[in-house]
Amino acid sequence: MKKLGHLNRDISRVLAGMGHTDCIVIADCGLPIPDHVECIDLSLQIGTPSYFATLNSILADFQVERAVLASECQAKNPAVAEQAEGLAQQGVQIEYVPHEQFKQLTHQARAIIRTGEASPYANIVLYSGVIF
């Protein structure tokens, strides 16, 4: 049995297949999922698992060079924006776009990881960096 990293086999598979600039999305339970994008649904109930727990788990196992969030989160969900600023301090390029534009970006994702999060604009597009 796998001891470290992600136990979720779908997340492990997607992360292992990521190349430079490919993207994945960590999403709240309300974000629409495009039909052609794989959905890894982790949601168990409202709030479980949370956006933050899921994001932190992914960040521990995934090299991110850029992240995009909905600009609305800055006013409507400051905790999400604060988490993003922490990523910026670690060298991740952060960009904010209107939520409608954010939803269009999800069409390019390798996968959308759906959480049980039920707070507004708790979504992020993570673009793969390289480890060398």
Rank of each mutant, 00 (worst) to 15 (best):
K2T: 04
L4V: 13
L4T: 12
G5Y: 03
G5W: 01
L7G: 14
S12K: 11
S12I: 10
S12Q: 09
R13N: 08
V14W: 00
A16Y: 15
G17L: 07
G17S: 10
M18N: 07
G19R: 15
H20E: 11
T21E: 06
C23L: 06
C23T: 09
V25D: 00
V25N: 03
I26E: 00
A27Q: 07
C29E: 06
P32V: 11
I33C: 06
I33T: 05
D35F: 01
H36G: 03
E38P: 00
C39T: 11
C39W: 08
I40S: 05
D41N: 15
D41A: 09
L42T: 07
S43V: 05
L44C: 06
L44E: 14
Q45Y: 06
G47E: 09
S50D: 07
F52R: 12
F52T: 12
A53S: 14
N56G: 15
S57V: 02
I58N: 02
D61Y: 00
F62Y: 13
Q63L: 00
V64Y: 04
R66Y: 02
S71Y: 04
E72K: 06
C73M: 10
Q74H: 08
Q74D: 09
P78H: 07
V80G: 01
V80K: 01
V80M: 03
A81T: 14
E82K: 12
Q83K: 09
Q83I: 04
A84L: 05
A84M: 14
E85N: 15
E85P: 08
E85I: 05
G86C: 13
L87D: 08
A88T: 12
Q89H: 14
Q90Y: 03
Q90K: 15
Q90E: 12
E95A: 12
E95G: 10
E95T: 09
E95Y: 03
V97H: 11
P98D: 11
P98N: 07
H99W: 02
E100Y: 03
E100F: 00
Q101K: 06
K103M: 08
T106S: 10
R110C: 01
A111C: 06
I112R: 01
R114S: 02
T115P: 06
G116F: 07
E117W: 04
E117F: 00
A118G: 14
P120A: 11
Y121Q: 06
N123K: 02
V125Q: 13
L126P: 13
L126G: 13
Y127V: 07
Y127K: 06
S128N: 14
S128P: 13
V130Y: 03
